[in-house]
Computed example of a mutant assay.
Amino acid sequence: MAQTPFGLFAIDQLVGEEDRDIRDTVRAYVEKEIKPQIADWYEAGQIPARDLARDLGKLGLLGMHLEGYGCAGTSATAYGLACLELEAGDSGLRSLVSVQGSLAMFAIWQWGSEEHKQQWLPRMAAGEAIGCFGLTEPDFGSDPGGMRTRARRDGDDWVLTGTKMWITNGSIADVAVVWAQTDEAADGKGIRGFVVPTDTPGFSAPAIKHKLSLRASVTSELVLDNVRLPGSAVFPEVRGLRGPLSCLNEARFGIVFGSLGAARDCLETAIAYAGQREIFDKPLAAFQITQTKLADMALELGKGMLLAIQLGKLKDAHQLRPEQISLGKLNNVREAIKIARECRTILGAAGITLEFPVLRHANNLESVLTYEGTSEVHQLIIGQALTGRSAYR
C-alpha cells in the first residue's frame, strides 16, 4: 500500500488530537471551497477576499492563536497546521490569514491600547473587519529602520505622510497598522505604530496589478497624504523596531508551516499524476528516475515538517527564539520551491497549466521566498546567532 509523504514520518503521532481536528477541519474547507475555484481566481487576478474573511472568521482561524477579544486561543502548532492546509490551497489564502492574524491583529493585541483592542479585535476575528500592516516601503524592505514615512505632532494629533508598498489586504482593509518615523529619538528608535482607519481623509490604497505571483491575493500600495489622527491612535508603549519585528516573527512562524502545504500539494499531485501517466507501456511512477525524485522530495518535505513541529512545541512553551524561526523560514521555503519545480518536471508540459497546481504554487513561493525576510536576511540572522557578530552594517 502506498504511503503518503507525511505518513512516512508518522507525523500524526507528533500532533495532539485537538490540533489534528483543527487541521482536518481546515483541510476539508480548502478541498471543498477553495481548490475548485482557485485556478480561476488566480487566472483572473481576483479573489473574493471579504467573503473568504467571513468564512475564515466563522471557522475561528483569524487571530486563532491569540487569547480573548473573540479569538480562539489555540496552540501555536494548531495555527501552524492551519497555515499548512490553507497554503495547500494557495499562498494567497494563507497570506490573507497571516496578515490579518499575525500582523494586524497581533500588533493591536500585543501593543495596542485597550481601546484599540475592544474596537477592532472582535470584528477582525469574525472577519467583519479586515486589517493590513504597513511596514515595507518602495526603498526599504530588508532595512525597515530606514523608512521615510513620517509622523509629526500637531497639537494633540499626529499627522502621517509617506508611502508603503507590497501591502497584502491594503485595498480592502478597514484598518491599517502603520509604522512611521517620529522625532522622539534618533537612529530608528523613534519608530511608532499607529492604528489608522482606512476611511481617514488622506489615506488611499491603490491595488498593485500585473503580478505574476500571488495573483489570488490583494496586494496594494498605501499612500498617506497628511493623514491626521488623534493622539490615541498611537501604540502607547512600544518604540523602535521591536514592535514591527515582533509581528514579523509571528508571520514568519506561519510561513514555516504554510510553505510545506504548498510543497505537499505539489508532491501529492506529482505522485497521483505519475501513477496514471503511461509512458513506454508502463506508469511513469514505475521508473527509477521518477521514484528517486519522489523519494528525495518526500525526504525534504518530512524533514521540514519535523522542524516545523519542533518550532511549534518551542513556541507553545514560550521558548522560541527569532533565529530559530529564521531556521524554519529559510529551510522550508527554500525546499518548498525546489519541490514545486521538481514536481513540474514530472508533470511535463501538463505542469505549466492551471489544470494542475504545481506551477501556481511555484510562482507563489517566489514571493514567499522573499517576503517576511529574504533568504539572505535569514542567513545573516542565523550567522549572527552562530558567531555573535552582526553582518548588517
Rank of each mutant, 00 (worst) to 15 (best):
A2E: 11
G7H: 07
G7P: 06
G7K: 06
I11A: 02
D12N: 05
D12V: 00
Q13K: 13
G16I: 07
D21E: 15
R27I: 01
R50M: 10
A53V: 05
R54G: 05
L61I: 09
L61Q: 10
Y79E: 13
G80P: 06
L81P: 02
E87T: 13
E87A: 14
A88V: 00
V99Y: 00
Q100Y: 07
G101F: 02
S102A: 11
L103I: 01
S113W: 00
E114V: 06
Q118W: 03
Q119T: 15
W120I: 04
P122A: 08
A129H: 10
G134P: 03
G134Q: 00
T136H: 10
D139V: 11
D143P: 02
P144T: 06
P144R: 04
R148A: 12
R150M: 09
G155M: 09
W158L: 02
G170M: 00
A185S: 08
A186K: 10
A186S: 12
G190K: 04
I191P: 02
G193V: 03
P197R: 05
P206D: 04
H210E: 13
L212Q: 14
R215I: 05
V218P: 00
V227K: 03
V234L: 01
P236E: 07
R239F: 03
L241S: 12
P244I: 07
L245M: 12
A251N: 05
S259F: 01
L260C: 08
R264G: 02
I271T: 08
I271W: 05
A274E: 01
A295D: 12
L299D: 12
L311M: 10
G312E: 10
K315R: 15
A317V: 05
E323I: 03
A336N: 05
A336I: 04
I337F: 11
R344S: 13
G348E: 01
G348H: 04
A349D: 10
A350H: 14
A350N: 15
A350Y: 12
G351D: 02
I352C: 10
I352N: 13
F356M: 10
E366V: 15
Y371G: 00
E372Y: 15
G373N: 00
Q379N: 13
L380E: 14
Q384K: 15
A391S: 13
